[in-house]
Lab assay of single mutants.
Amino acid sequence: MIVFVRFNSSHGFPVEVDSDTSIFQLKEVVAKRQGVPADQLRVIFAGKELRNDWTVQNCDLDQQSIVHIVQRPWRKGQEMNATGGDDPRNAAGGCEREPQSLTRVDLSSSVLPGDSVGLAVILHTDSRKDSPPAGSPAGRSIYNSFYVYCKGPCQRVQPGKLRVQCSTCRQATLTLTQGPSCWDDVLIPNRMSGECQSPHCPGTSAEFFFKCGAHPTSDKETSVALHLIATNSRNITCITCTDVRSPVLVFQCNSRHVICLDCFHLYCVTRLNDRQFVHDPQLGYSLPCVAGCPNSLIKELHHFRILGEEQYNRYQQYGAEECVLQMGGVLCPRPGCGAGLLPEPDQRKVTCEGGNGLGCGFAFCRECKEAYHEGECSAVFEASGTTTQAYRVDERAAEQARWEAASKETIKKTTKPCPRCHVPVEKNGGCMHMKCPQPQCRLEWCWNCGCEWNRVCMGDHWFDV
Rank of each mutant, 00 (worst) to 15 (best):
E452V: 15
S9N: 08
H265S: 07
S218N: 11
Y149Q: 02
Q197I: 10
V258I: 05
H227A: 14
D53N: 10
V148F: 00
A379R: 09
S141N: 11
C154H: 00
A291R: 08
S145G: 05
Q64G: 13
N273T: 03
E28Q: 11
V148A: 02
S286Y: 01
V36S: 02
R314Y: 02
N81Q: 13
G336I: 06
D60L: 08
V111Q: 13
L287C: 03
S9Q: 04
D394P: 06
D185A: 00
K408T: 11
P189N: 06
M432H: 06
S286C: 02
Y285W: 13
W74S: 13
K161E: 14
P247W: 03
D60G: 15
I66T: 13
Y315N: 01
C431S: 14
S65L: 03
P281G: 10
N313I: 09
H303E: 01
E79D: 13
E382D: 12
R75G: 13
R163K: 11
F304C: 01
V250F: 02
W183H: 02
K161R: 15
R256S: 07
P133V: 11
S110F: 05
W447H: 05
V67F: 07
Q178V: 07
V324F: 05
C436N: 01
P343H: 06
P294W: 04
V425R: 05
G139P: 12
F364R: 02
K413M: 11
F381E: 06
S218G: 10
C196V: 00
G84C: 12
L187K: 06
S167T: 12
E309I: 09
D185E: 06
L341M: 12
T415I: 11
A406D: 15
Y318K: 02
G152Y: 15
V250M: 09
K76V: 15
R33F: 04
E221A: 06
V121L: 11
P247R: 05
K413I: 14
E322D: 06
G459S: 15
P437V: 04
A38E: 06
V456T: 15
Y285T: 04
R396V: 09
G94W: 11
D274Q: 04
G139S: 13
S145N: 07
N8T: 01
S218K: 09
Q347S: 10
A379M: 11
V290Q: 03
G354A: 09
C457V: 01
M327S: 11
Y391L: 05
F210V: 05
F381K: 07
